[in-house]
Simulated assay, not measured.
Amino acid sequence: MAAAIKLRSRYDNTPGYLEKRHPAGVLLRSQLAVAEFLDEIDDQYAAAGDGGPGVGWLLRFRSDFRAMIQDGLLAAYGLGKCLQTGPTHTPAYAVAIFLLGRCASRSHTLGLSRLDAESTPAVRKHYARALRRVEAWPRLRRLSEDHPDDRFVQAVLENTTRRPFVNRLSRFAQHVDHSHEAEAALVSRMPLWIRDTEWNGKPPKRASWIRIVLERIREWVRGE
């Protein structure tokens, strides 16, 4: 199981450094553990029969998902190798795309842009999400051009375009209350207090992206 990989992100964020830091045996064990995990996903899907495994069948693997994402680049190394050699039409391939997208970042895309992950609509959905997360806009635009009829891919690309700052600022100013503007003092006599706290949070999700997630949940519930 992939959860057996108990290595944490104590290494540099470059694959080249990873290969120099860890012996070939460690990288091979990572690749074999990831391959075994993906094979188990395919076996579970095949055992469900023609009716499919149903909604939520991947929940039993959530601990493995968390372990691989926390392992970071070491798990990403095995995922990348499996994506290069494995079949693209299996459910495990889409899962591997999702996990690699969670391990990657804007500064280290881990080869996401070089993948040819366009075989099925499910794979394209996870691939488009991963490209958007790491902000690989050129590859996302090429994916949109290759599949103009894929509504999900088109929606992901359209939601990456932001309005100009001038328009957003003017829209914000329309909702500002100016009724007490004349009562405000020009110079405040209050002392300035600043609370120095370390910022550990994450930026909020965009409304357009939340809408995409809710539409996906509705598809799962309705079985569409």
Rank of each mutant, 00 (worst) to 15 (best):
A130M: 12
L131E: 06
L131M: 09
R132N: 12
R132I: 13
R133V: 01
R133E: 08
V134P: 00
E135T: 07
R139C: 01
L140H: 10
R141P: 07
R141C: 08
R142V: 11
L143N: 01
S144C: 12
E145D: 05
E145K: 01
E145Y: 00
D146R: 04
D146L: 06
H147V: 13
P148N: 02
D149N: 15
D149S: 15
D150L: 00
F152C: 01
V153R: 05
Q154V: 07
A155Y: 02
V156D: 00
V156T: 06
V156G: 07
L157F: 01
L157V: 03
E158I: 10
E158R: 08
N159M: 03
T160F: 00
T160E: 03
T160K: 08
T160G: 04
R162W: 07
P164A: 08
V166C: 00
V166P: 06
N167M: 08
N167P: 03
L169A: 06
S170I: 08
S170V: 14
A173P: 01
Q174P: 00
V176Y: 01
V176F: 05
S179V: 13
H180W: 09
A182R: 12
A184R: 12
A184G: 11
A185V: 12
A185H: 15
L186K: 05
L186D: 04
V187N: 11
R189I: 11
P191D: 07
L192Q: 07
W193Y: 11
W193I: 04
R195G: 13
D196Y: 02
T197I: 05
T197N: 06
T197M: 04
W199H: 03
N200I: 02
G201R: 10
P204A: 09
K205R: 15
K205I: 12
R206W: 15
R206A: 03
R206L: 03
